[in-house]
Design a binder for these strands. Sequence first.
DNA 1: CCCCTAGACTAACAAGCGTTAGTTTGCATG
DNA 2: CATGCAAACTAACGCTTGTTAGTCTAGGGG
Lengths: 194, 194
Amino acid sequence: MSGELTTEARILEVASRLFYERGYEATSMRDLAEGVGIRAPSLYNHFADKQAILVRICLDTMREFHTGALECLAGMDNPAHRLRVLINWQVRFEASHPYTVRVADAQLTALDPVTRREVIEVRDAYEQLLTSILAEGGHQGHWRVEDPRVICMGIIGMCKINSWYRDGAALTPEQIGDRYATLILAALDASTRI
Amino acid sequence: MSGELTTEARILEVASRLFYERGYEATSMRDLAEGVGIRAPSLYNHFADKQAILVRICLDTMREFHTGALECLAGMDNPAHRLRVLINWQVRFEASHPYTVRVADAQLTALDPVTRREVIEVRDAYEQLLTSILAEGGHQGHWRVEDPRVICMGIIGMCKINSWYRDGAALTPEQIGDRYATLILAALDASTRI
DNA sequence: CCCCTAGACTAACAAGCGTTAGTTTGCATG
DNA sequence: CATGCAAACTAACGCTTGTTAGTCTAGGGG
């Protein structure tokens, strides 16, 4: 065992990178094994089959993302604070999990239908969370939000910095998150003229 | 020949849908041929190989997107108008080319390096276009834009409605584009308190 | 009326795929 | 020192893949 990680952890690590770079179907078990430093059949000592590796990556990532979001919001009431915290969390998560986040999104089509449904349910739960914050801010009169869902999807898309952000950029993920949160909060402010 | 399209056009149409649904690698030439209503070897009467089909889809889509953007901006000077028009164009294009836009993005890894570079160059040109508009509005004092590129990427991400928008939604693409443009313009407005 | 070409077809190939069976190895425990 | 088990290995399987070679057929121009 090289390094200090278990073989299972190293398989997941290498698989995330390869699925990210080439896609699930374009990555062979032999490629993956070579990256780990073992032979292909040995992979089956750790995972039932190729699909199980993808399932682990996608489900683990989505669940960590969602539970982390809930923890960030714990005990917060003010919609503006909640929105800012959530935007910051997503941006930071995208930057700290560059491979797995993209795999969980772009390789959805390679997932078996059952797991795909599960991943989508977690994703929907997050969207619901964000939408409810927007709606609440609207009801309280702080924000101008005619279509919370449309705004929600716009914010989520904006926060997907994973497609362009690379380590060593001029701004840290924290700074980018702050910029986006400030921008959205300014835009939603009901006192602003259109 | 069924319908009124050439066989080549029908191949591109079916391939776009299959690459979108399953990915490039997961779509076999036999699957594709079946969708078109011919046998696999007949595909080679229209395209040199499988890769050539993907190349056509990705390059055609990106070029149509970029030249369309330039046409939308022709003769427009005001940064606010230019930004609004560009946001609207992207949102409408995403909605009107749901399959090919996603393929040109998600299947980038399946493209041969030469074509991938070409696609990325077109994408970069669009980003440069948007960034320059933001920077100009900043220099003219209309907008508060400290980091034009970060804002640019945020706007582009926001406009990728293709991942969630489906025909028959409550709002039309035009309406969504208007909402986003208004939101961004309100956020950038230099006279707004933060 | 014949020929030529475009575009369909069948048959088949070599390569690579995910996976299984069966075997060996090395360490930890009694 | 013997034993057992986890986890590596080699060999090989059946299948699918992209692609090529060669053939057939229908329609339009000389």
